[in-house]
């Protein structure tokens, strides 16, 4: 039988229409797997826009972001390379850009090691807050990119960056596995992804005090502090996203505040207020607030005028796969018995 071509029967546009290259993305998640929504992206966006619109208050609470950005950039020092194109994902107020231009006593500022920096964030106001400050002039080339809302794919071409940095913004991402694999795709082969995020037991003092106050005042517990990823999860997530040569470590930053109110005001000014979907829309009641102040001071207080708050920062480094990287050998190829090297006898 003669094969029949379907071509003449197809409508013309179906043959011709092809999406432009910019709109094509990798399929990142198997269909049918629903994403677990933890945070309300819209509320988070509004909180950050609002926080950044008061530039003065927002700069006053930059202490945490600047410190973490500095520590993150120190890790970049260990990689002796020149980076033609670097992306700062979730840039907040371009704190990484500022840290890169900071003068360094031993070597020239880190910004000399890169040719082009792209700072990307979903909040336009936050991203452009410090656009007039002098550090901008010290960067070789700097682009600010406003990202589309959180659940849309990243607007970057595959394999376009030599390094991706991210400081204190991954903890608000709902679909972390998908974002991490997108990051892996837009990295060039054998390039590092270096990130810092809040995690684990950050603000455990506030969390526990609020729970106790809620229990006593209202007889139950409500979500007042957003949940955070755990250190143990991050290694697994990075591996799943295809990163190699992982390093994950933890650093605690403890900040003393005059009172719980000062801590909460600062968190709000950072744009880091609670945005969990399960949070009560009405917010905290005054009774619970006053009770929290009393409990926090007694349970965690420094005994004097101040109360501590712990920020647990998870640092992670992952490399995209590339030639020349050392890889683990396949199972069962070992030639030497570990017992001969390490010693030790029979198990009794």
């Amino acid at each position: 039988m003669k094969p029949v071509s379907l071509r003449p029967f197809l409508p013309r546009p179906a043959l011709r229409r092809r999406l432009p290259r910019e709109f094509r993305h990798y399929a990142l998640q198997t269909s049918g797997v629903p994403t677990l929504q933890v945070f309300n992206d819209r509320i988070k966006h509004l909180q950050r826009e609002r926080a950044a619109s008061d530039a003065e208050a927002s700069r006053r609470v930059d202490y945490l972001r600047d410190e973490v950005a500095n520590r993150l950039c120190e890790r970049l020092l260990d990689i002796t390379r020149h980076f033609p194109s670097v992306l700062d994902l979730g840039a907040n107020a371009c704190n990484i850009a500022r840290a890169l231009t900071a003068p360094n006593p031993d070597s020239p500022a880190l910004s000399t090691r890169l040719s082009h920096l792209t700072s990307a964030d979903t909040s336009h106001t936050f991203l452009h807050r410090d656009v007039d400050l002098p550090f901008n002039a010290l960067l070789p080339a700097h682009t600010r990119t406003v990202l589309p809302p959180a659940d849309t794919p990243l607007p970057f071409k595959p394999q376009s960056f030599n390094a991706i940095l991210s400081s204190l913004s991954l903890h608000w991402v709902n679909d972390l596995p998908s974002l991490l694999s997108q990051i892996n795709h837009i990295l060039k082969p054998d390039s590092p992804f270096i990130a810092a995020m809040l995690g684990g037991d950050s603000l455990f003092e506030l969390r526990t005090s609020l729970q106790l106050a809620d229990l006593d005042r209202r007889g139950g517990v409500s979500t007042h502090v957003s949940p955070l990823a755990d250190v143990r999860d991050m290694g697994g997530l990075l591996t799943k996203a295809g990163f190699k040569l992982l390093t994950v470590d933890v650093d605690d930053i403890i900040v003393d505040y005059p009172s719980v109110f000062a801590l909460m005001t600062d968190l709000q000014a950072m744009g880091e207020s609670n945005a969990a979907l399960t949070a009560e829309k009405s917010g905290l009641r005054r009774d619970v607030l006053a009770a929290t102040e009393g409990i926090y001071r007694e349970l965690h207080g420094n005994g004097g005028e101040s109360v501590p708050a712990t920020f647990r920062i998870i640092y992670m480094i992952g490399w995209s796969e590339g030639d020349g990287q050392s890889k683990p050998l396949p199972r069962g190829t070992g030639q030497v018995n570990m017992k001969d090297i390490l010693g030790g006898g029979e198990i009794k």
Binding site: D216, G219, F261, G294, E298
Partner: peptide, 25 residues
Amino acid sequence: VAKCSAEASVYGKCIIADYNGVYKD
């Protein structure tokens, strides 16, 4: 609230005396 640190302290001590067994009121 800051003016009432003495009362807040008494209340806080009452709660943390047994923080595994806190119930309403």
